[in-house]
Design a protein around this nucleic acid. Structure first.
Length: 570
RNA sequence: GGCGUUAUAGCUCAGUUGGUUAGAGCGAACGACUCAUAAUCGUUAGGUCGGUGGUUCAAGUCCACCUAACGCCA
């Protein structure tokens, strides 16, 4: 059995994420992790919060808290929401961890030794009032092109012209509004990614099974204009990982920290170390996942992310790893997603537009969101969330097709045979047809899940649920019972086994409902079926069960209308 | 402005390397069943595959141009 390392893009610490963020990385990663575990694979599924950088500092200041405290609190909040959505991380780490500090500094040292770090003198805007250097986007002023008075230092949002902070007329700090700004000399480290361009290009070319979204973005960055550009990896900030060359000081870089995009992906590795520490294991426990010289050769590493994160994962992070010349594991498969839009527009954190993770869980259980989001995952293009579609999909798929099936067969059995799997009868042509159909669908479902075809997997799973209803409708045990109780017993026994089977194979999508189904049959640890034949022979005659409560209550029109207006944004 | 992605039935989407009458789910109409959360099952209707031109014996599927939406531009 292969071992699988799975990481989800790490969410930024600054606030609660919306459903678009969730479906773009953490949720599909969880689906895949749960599936592989269910199939008996050894899985290490990691995620963390991305905690460094200016936005975190500003959010902390706004909350009136020290940035470290703020991050610790928000980490706890995000961890709780992850649990709420049943995200089955083996560890949910923090990019501010001791391990990440050490590892980030280690990589910088190795890259420098390999001649891949360049020291560059640059001019940057410094705010005397804020006592800090200002990133381009935190400088506001009047656009020289269109006269818009809230243009940012990197771009004018009104006329979309690319700008340099020094282009702005009457520049001011976006943080304090102060116009007491000056341009200062400062020194920064650049990662010479351009040196690795051909290596990265060849590596990307070898990945023929990646989504086009992934490779097209990577290729574009590699070949656009002058090709892959070097990137600054340091910043003049307080909050971050101090610039060091391994364990040594880095003369001339005192008081500076690594830029967040450099240390964030390294947290994928550091997180494994945090995991082994939390588990009370020694270093070899995590190194066998990450070091190809220490046992990670048989690991298959899959990353999940939204499309905005693709450049970092296809180019910058691989450049860091390859450039270190150390035997770190590179990503094998990279699954990227487009955006989820909300009633015709974008989700927006700043405008409070859309649905956020905490709000979602306040109105409905995780399974509802998991099902809708995964069955509508933005794989081939952006996907739109609408309340009407959500209501219809959830009611039909979960309540009618799956939930009602479990309900109808367990209640039928209870009324005719009692709460035990009935004995007697033998399979006939109808049953053979059903088994044949299910065997085929199960095989397709497994192949699609293996290939991380999220939407198609959901479709296939739904079709399997529907086959249960088709079967009952065809053989009609309620009629058979009147003339041939033995045969009705066989049909009912098969129906109950189908419900049990659905419970097992649905767990990656709807883990809570799956658990309820299996508990009602008293088989919480039921394993993945080897075939349709064994799947429908798990519950033997005489096996006791209880009728579960309604698995999925329907969303009413009143609820939908209320939520629609509650979440319309302002 | 440059680049990229997308554009297929009312809605959400599938359509492998170009090859017989373009598919699914939802919604709609009709019918069946009555065990079940008025749930389920079946049948039917519905598309000149964004537009124009081209390559080919043959194009939704390749090429060019155009249009629209979305995104990225370090």
């Amino acid at each position: 059995m292969a071992r699988h390392l799975i990481t989800s893009a790490i969410p930024y610490i600054n606030g609660i994420k919306h459903l678009g963020n969730l479906v773009g990385s953490q949720l599909p990663a969880d689906l895949y992790a749960r599936y592989l575990r269910a199939r008996g694979h050894e899985v290490l599924f990691l995620c963390a919060t991305d905690e460094h950088g200016t936005p975190a500092e500003l959010a902390a200041a706004k909350a009136g808290k020290p940035v470290a405290d703020y991050c610790a609190e928000m980490h706890a909040v995000q961890a709780e929401l992850a649990r709420g959505f049943r995200l089955s991380f083996d560890h949910f780490g923090r990019s501010s961890s001791r391990q990440n500090h050490a590892l980030t500094q280690h990589f910088a040292g190795k890259l420098d030794a390999a001649g891949l770090i360049e020291e560059v003198q640059e001019q940057q805007v410094y705010s005397n009032a804020d006592k800090r250097f200002l990133p381009d986007r935190y400088i506001e002023g009047t656009c020289p092109n269109c006269g818009y008075d809230k243009a940012r230092g990197d771009q004018c949002e009104n006329c979309t012209k690319q700008l340099d902070p020094t282009d702005l007329i009457a520049p001011r700090s976006a943080i304090s509004g102060s116009n007491d700004l000056e341009v200062r000399q400062t020194k920064h480290l650049y990662l010479r990614q351009s040196v690795l361009k051909d290596t990265l290009d060849a590596w990307i070319d070898s990945k023929t099974d990646w989504p086009v979204l992934t490779t097209s973005i990577a290729k574009k960055w590699l070949h656009d204009g002058d090709g892959l550009k070097d990137r600054g990896i340091t910043r003049d900030l307080d909050w971050g990982i101090p610039v060091r060359r391994g364990k040594e000081e880095w003369p001339g870089m005192e008081g500076k920290v690594f830029y967040v995009w450099f240390d964030a992906p390294i947290e994928y590795i550091a997180c494994a170390s945090e995991w082994s520490e939390a588990q009370g294991l020694d270093a070899s426990a995590w190194e066998r996942w990450w070091r190809t010289d220490k046992g990670a050769d048989d690991v298959r590493y899959t990353q999940f992310m939204g499309k905005d994160n693709v450049p970092f994962h296809t180019l910058s992070f691989p450049a860091t790893i390859l450039g270190s010349a150390e035997p770190w594991k590179l990503v094998d498969h990279l699954k990227s997603f487009n955006y989820l839009t909300y009633d015709g527009g974008q989700f927006s954190t700043s405008q409070g537009r859309g649905i956020f993770m905490d709000q979602a869980l306040e109105i409905l259980p995780a399974d509802y969101w998991r099902w809708w989001l995964l069955s509508h995952a933005p794989e081939s293009s952006d996907a739109e969330f609408t309340w009407e579609n959500f209501q219809v999909s959830v009611n039909k798929d979960l309540a009618d097709v799956l939930g009602n099936f479990v309900s109808r067969i367990t209640k039928f059995c209870r009324s005719k045979f009692g709460e035990r799997v009935p004995d007697g009868g033998a399979f006939g042509p109808d049953e053979m047809d059903l088994l044949h159909a299910i065997q085929e669908r199960l095989g397709r479902y497994e192949a699609l899940m293996q290939a991380i075809e999220v939407r198609k997997s959901a479709q296939e799973l739904r079709a399997i649920w529907a086959s249960g209803n088709e079967y009952l409708q065809t053989v009609a045990p309620w009629s058979t019972f009147k003339t041939d109780p033995e045969k009705a017993a066989m049909q009912t026994r098969l129906g109950l086994n189908l419900a049990h089977f659905f419970g097992v194979i649905s767990s990656p999508f709807v883990p809570d409902a799956s658990e309820v189904i299996l508990e009602s049959f008293g088989t919480p640890a039921a394993g993945w079926p080897e075939s349709a034949n064994t799947a429908v022979d798990q519950l033997k005659a005489g096996h006791a069960f209880t009728v579960p409560d309604v698995l999925f209550a329907k969303i009413t029109d009143e609820q939908r209308e209320k939520w629609q207006s509650d979440f319309s944004g302002t």
